[in-house]
């Protein structure tokens, strides 16, 4: 599914990722942990194609294609989804119309007709109920004035709607209350499948206890310094990174 080789990435003049190598097979769940500033969001944004993150060298292949050759839009349409650590506000655009537009964009790419209003409303109600998102939130503007937790739930909702092949969740659990964390973890577990891979960036054992990743990687200074199974997460939780 994803093959990252000797990746070096800079932001402005600072080199952030150093010879990062990571391989993820279809159906696997990988967790990434690591201290603040170690480059976790950097790899997430680089995978999504954020132009502020400059790839100096290395390669990334995604389902056999050269990911670095693809525009951000194309990456999304081909099934790569990044749940943002800091979701962006879009004033003046209602969440409902935004969600419908991004869904239709994916449907168009798959050669399907746009979803009609009634059908969309039904789908939205279903998914929102599952994630315990009140429908009123969809008449508000995208993420605008949403609480931290609401923004994160909205990311999970989009993830659910777009049905991606590769999910990158950048600290989606930060800012969620206990109940919301459970709901989110449930949703993620539902999405686990042999056709889908997940990368979960987190600081907390909590989410990982629900989701049970196949691998845990520890980031430091822009590279992986240790990898292991889920017991590694418990160790870090007890002992810290030092």
């Amino acid at each position: 599914m994803l093959e990252i080789k000797k990746l070096n990435v800079s932001v402005e003049e600072n080199k952030i990722l150093n010879d990062l190598t990571l391989s993820i097979k279809t159906g696997e769940v990988h967790a990434i942990m690591g201290p603040n500033g170690s480059g976790k969001s950097t790899i997430a944004h680089t995978l999504a194609g954020n132009p502020n993150y400059r790839v100096e060298s290395g390669s990334i292949s995604f389902n056999g294609s050269d990911l670095l050759d693809m525009e951000p839009t194309e990456r999304s349409l081909d099934g790569l989804f990044l749940a943002f650590q800091y979701p962006i506000e879009i004033p003046g655009v209602t969440n409902a119309s935004y969600l419908r537009q991004i869904l239709n964009s994916h449907r168009k790419h798959q050669g399907k007709d746009p979803i009609d209003a009634a059908e969309f409303l039904k789908l939205l109600k279903e998914k929102s109920a599952y994630l315990k998102i009140p429908m009123e939130m969809h008449s508000r503007f995208v993420n605008t004035g949403f609480s931290g937790g609401e923004k994160k739930k909205n990311e999970v909702l989009q993830m659910d709607l777009l049905d991606p092949k590769l999910i990158i969740m950048d600290e989606t659990d930060s800012g969620l209350d206990v109940d919301a964390l459970k709901v989110t973890a449930d949703a993620v577990n539902q999405m686990k499948s042999k056709n889908r891979s997940l990368i979960i960036v987190t600081h907390y054992l909590r989410l990982l206890e629900y989701i049970k990743p196949d691998f845990v990687h520890i980031f430091q200074n822009g590279k992986i310094i240790e990898s292991g199974d889920s017991s590694l997460a418990s160790r870090i939780d007890k002992e810290g990174y030092e």
Partner: peptide, 22 residues
């Protein structure tokens, strides 16, 4: 904002038009 929309599968023109209409 643009990148956020692109990440969700809109192309640049669609993203811009969404943001400007907002």
């Amino acid at each position: 904002q643009l990148f956020y929309c692109l990440q969700r599968g809109l192309n640049e023109e669609e993203a811009q038009s969404l943001i400007v209409n907002g």
